[in-house]
Nucleic acid binder design. Structure first.
Length: 218
DNA sequence: GACCAGGCACATC
DNA sequence: GATGTGCATGGT
């Protein structure tokens, strides 16, 4: 069994050297991070960009503005990112939650301890572990590691976890073997995504996916 | 035309 | 508790 901490640090260094800083999250405000995190569920970021551009054009990127728009109209604005009916409902669910409990104030909500924020986020229908953790890391600036499909695939290929590993197990692996740094967790997750959609979609042996063997592609 | 993309909830067994 | 399915657009 390889030392997870050592493997994860090596992996990070290789990707950082290869791709450089990713400047995540691509958004202007914390609230926009949340919108993007919900809209990008199982969806390419390109499509999310179109949806967010529509929201921006129509001045629908603040809690109040989203509260006051009709759900069906909202769905039409976010249509390019797919699942638009269900995502419109999910955005509304979060907005309702924010106004009901925190007077529509993200600052009030983010004043809570990390664990409490996470618990509250997960209570909103439409926010699961990855979306909650993306919000914690990239909007609330807490040292939480975001796990996604790319992350799992990478770790499986490195032999650090088994195929049936769950979200929390993978998260503990990162959080337990790396320094709890917002900056590091930010960059690491972004690099994993970048690498995932770049060279190594199907290659079983990539320099990064399997550190002992050379990458066949690119 | 198949396949994928920065998930999640819900039904069914 | 595990497994399957619906949600939907746009790019390759």
């Amino acid at each position: 069994m390889p030392d997870p901490g050592k493997s994860l640090k090596l992996c990070y260094n290789i990707m950082y050297k290869l791709y450089g800083p990713q400047h995540w999250w691509p958004a202007k405000t914390a609230f926009e991070v949340i919108i993007g995190a919900m809209l990008t569920q199982n969806t390419s970021w390109k499509n999310v960009e179109k949806a967010i551009a529509n929201l921006r054009k129509n001045n629908k990127l603040t809690p109040k503005q989203l509260r006051d728009i009709d759900k069906n109209k909202l769905a039409l604005l976010i249509k390019p990112c797919g699942y638009y009916n269900i995502k419109a409902r999910r955005l509304k669910n979060f907005i309702d939650f924010l106004f009901k409990n925190y007077n529509g104030s993200l600052n009030k909500f983010f004043a809570l301890p990390t664990g409490k924020i996470r618990h509250e986020l997960l209570s909103v229908n439409g926010i699961g572990p990855e979306t909650a953790d993306s919000i914690l890391l990239y909007a609330a600036k807490r040292p939480v590691f975001v796990v996604d499909a790319y992350t799992k695939r990478l770790l499986v290929r490195q032999g650090l976890i088994k195929e049936d590993a769950g979200y929390e197990q993978i998260q503990r692996l990162f959080e337990g073997s790396l320094p709890k740094s917002i900056k590091l967790f930010n960059e690491y997750h972004a690099l994993i995504v970048r690498h995932g959609k770049d060279v190594c979609k199907k290659a079983p042996k990539c320099q990064i996916c399997a550190l002992h063997s050379g990458c066949k592609r690119k």
